[in-house]
Design a protein around this nucleic acid. Structure first.
Lengths: 346, 346
DNA sequence: TTCTTAATGGCAAACGTTTGCATTCTCTGA
DNA sequence: TCAGAGAATGCAAACGTTTGCCATTAAGAA
């Protein structure tokens, strides 16, 4: 039905192989022939059929993106959108296509991955999360299938290419930042503890307060499931501990927004009565009221680098597994003030 | 290298064709043989090679998603994320894969589309926008390539399958809603006027105010480019007209957030001094402060339906081009109050 | 003029499937 | 016992490429 390499060959009076070589601009074909063939291609409206090529080259020039468990939530979160955007940009640069998992449960996603990998639909895979008790990564490793992770692998991190922030360090800096502002009652609201990012940041935070000889009761440490109802509960609890915190560290902008809303409902003013600092520097932090002080994790860059790494892996250069740590930086806006200047509520 | 249908055939002592037919569970193969072959498949760890099938079946079971111009912005906007989530869910149901454009300029996206379509990488395409002066849609129509649009096509809408809200009606209802609350100085902040959604809503709004014999000066009508700097400017201008508005209609939650921030900086309180209503009911509207009254455009549903339509188209049932209008409903939260109960600023 | 060699292009196999048609096998009924 | 029917399976071509190797041509050297 559509015009193939053979049609072009016939029309141009050359062999199909010649046409193919013109396509790849092989030096074995003379300029004259190339011109002739290209003209015929244009005239006939020829376009390469992808699957034909894939079949023989055993390469799809496509990378797969493995979403995390509930893509419902990932999609909601501008952090993932940024990641995708970065990946997308890098792929475009390298002329790779993108195929994303569509499953919405861990099981379904795993099946998607198998379909991608075994069905040879993709050359490599980017795993958008790092999580313990995950089946995808072991599966990929077992088959020696090229992949890179966003987030530090829970195990064998020397053997896996990954792109990540230094989350321990980042959390430390955040704590130092608040401590420098005079806060010593700091509430910590982390994310799902199955994810590496959560534990890393918590560790960093604990290191920092220990280094400053600050002791914090365990009821100042919370985990939030993405859900604003949860935020209300957590905020209530935090306000009811014996010495309530004067500052809060929240795992990302999105949850911070939920926390702010909950505080607002409790008539706690930000930053006058509570400082808040969060992670990711998504557009939300700029638009929040007040605008959020947040650590820029450079999610776009994270995505971009991960795709770059994968492509490099695929092009086969790499002998050892390199990893990339993307630096973080605190972006100061208006949600944090010095402890001394706060309103005294009593 | 990996195990093919032939390997399985040899091992099971049958012909490759038989294995293929077992794969598709053809009634022409006896149960006994099927069992035997399936056992061998399992033992050998066989998995179908996708490209091989594609080549002969001339169908990829993959749909392409065409992002709008600056995916940079689309990705930022939870509205698009929701769309994607809906598409993804439907695709998963129908066992289709997803391939998205990676280009970031109109030109690059167009090239991506050509690559998808001519390279036969996808069976059909979903265009995530409706815009005048667009090259993608004409291209698809010319080649009779199956596609569906999200948003009403600027032309030939009887000939194109699309999924959309009734934006004229929705805007009308929003206006009526505000009028019923007693507002008659209403500011309107639309989006990029190249997009159909923008013009449709504006039309609806104008109809509604005309129907109520309200006259509004043209300087109450603004268009916002996505960018919070712009929001400040627009807000300033709106506050400086002779009789400033008491209510604002904003084209989506995201921009509404920016507008709210700008108002806040001007010390205008919401809703006491200004009511705001927006579109899309993304999670942002729930988390805003105060939570936004917004019209739920059901973006997830929009995405889901569009993929459903496309699959139906591909399965070839459709003779005529059906379109789906997804209903909208105003979700009342706390950003709108009756004009009478507002603070008087003078 | 003849031989050598470099440049150019063609042949055909291969990639992993599917599918129309042909073949083989197993019954059934006379 | 055998023709014939129907069920089960096999054969081989086709899908659109790429690529190793061979064939042809032309040019240059002797």
């Amino acid at each position: 039905m559509s015009v193939t390499i053979k049609d072009v060959a016939k029309q141009a009076n050359v062999a199909p192989s010649t046409v193919s070589r013109v396509l790849s601009d092989s030096p074995r074909i003379s300029e004259k022939t190339k011109r002739k063939v290209r003209k015929v291609m244009d005239d006939m409206g020829y376009h390469l059929n992808f699957s034909g090529r894939v079949l023989v080259q055993q390469s799809t020039q496509t990378i797969g993106i493995v979403m995390k468990k509930s893509s419902s939530h990932s999609f909601d979160n501008p952090f993932f959108a940024e990641l995708l955007r970065g990946i997308s940009a890098s792929c475009h640069k390298h002329d790779y296509s993108i195929n994303i998992t569509t499953g919405d449960s861990e099981e379904a996603i795993f099946r998607d991955v198998i379909k991608m990998v075994q069905g040879k639909r993709v050359d490599g895979v980017i795993v958008l999360y790092s999580k313990e008790d995950d089946q995808v990564v072991p599966y990929l490793r077992e088959r020696d299938f090229p992949f890179v992770m966003i987030g530090k692998p829970p195990a064998d991190s020397n053997d896996i290419t990954y792109v990540d922030n230094d989350n321990v360090e980042a959390a430390k800096e955040v704590a130092e930042f608040l401590i420098r502002l005079g806060h010593n009652r700091i509430g910590y609201i982390g994310g799902d503890s199955h994810f590496e990012v959560t534990t890393a940041r918590l560790a960093g935070f604990r290191q920092a307060i220990a280094a400053h000889d600050i002791e914090l009761p365990e009821d100042l440490f919370k985990n939030i499931q993405f859900d604003s109802g949860d935020a209300k509960k957590i905020v209530s609890e935090l306000l009811e501990v014996e010495h309530p915190p004067t500052a809060l560290i929240v795992t990302d902008d999105f949850n911070a927004l939920a926390v702010m809303l909950a505080l607002h409902e409790k008539n706690v003013r930000i930053p006058e009565e509570m400082s808040i600092i969060s992670f990711n520097n998504t557009i939300i932090s700029r638009l929040a009221n007040p605008p959020l002080t947040t650590v820029d994790t450079q999610s776009y860059q994270l995505g971009y680098e991960s795709a770059d790494c994968l492509v490099e892996l695929l092009r086969g250069g790499e002998v050892f597994k390199k990893s990339v740590i993307v630096p973080t930086v605190i972006v100061e806006r208006e949600s944090c003030i010095a402890e001394q200047t706060m309103l005294n509520k009593k």
